[in-house]
Amino acid sequence: MARYGMVIDTKKCVGCMDCVVACKTENNVPEGHNRDWIVTVVNGKFPSVNLEIQSQRCNHCDNTPCVACCPTGASHIHEVGNVVLVEHNMCIGCKACLAACPYDARFINPEGYADKCTFCIHRVEKGELPACVSVCPTHCMYFGDLDDPNSEVSKLISSRKNHQLIPEAGTSPRIFYLT
């Protein structure tokens, strides 16, 4: 069974937010909320500055506090690609998962359920890439099976310097940022 993950090349990313817009229209994300977002990390003192621009979203972790804490089983691991999903009909909007997520990746949809990135599993199951990956004008995002050593994502992780977000949270996040 595949284990989907994402690799994002921060050297190429310009932080244009196209990933955020494409997700919003693809998934009809309500006004005032987004399932992905841009963080710009600035280091140094002018003029010796460096930036790392990160397109962030749910990390679809291997260890999932959001699933573990869910009282109804709405938060679950999908059989395809081990993607972390929320079954809207089962969710009671208790916000336990919002508190448990170290990445602040979830929000309560105005319709009452916990909402977040799905890795566009509805597209992936049809053989397409997630909307954010397919729209990116800089081609800085890669999606694929981390368990397949020949996948583009696995090769990038083994060949390029990279890091995950908040690894110390121990969730084993599946998004890798190339630096």
Partner: peptide
């Protein structure tokens, strides 16, 4: 300021040049 100035083809080519 390509990248902030989002003229599509130019930004795509710019990212290519960076790569």
């Amino acid at each position: 300021h390509l990248g902030e100035n989002m003229h599509n083809s130019q930004v795509q080519e710019f990212a290519n040049a960076v790569q």
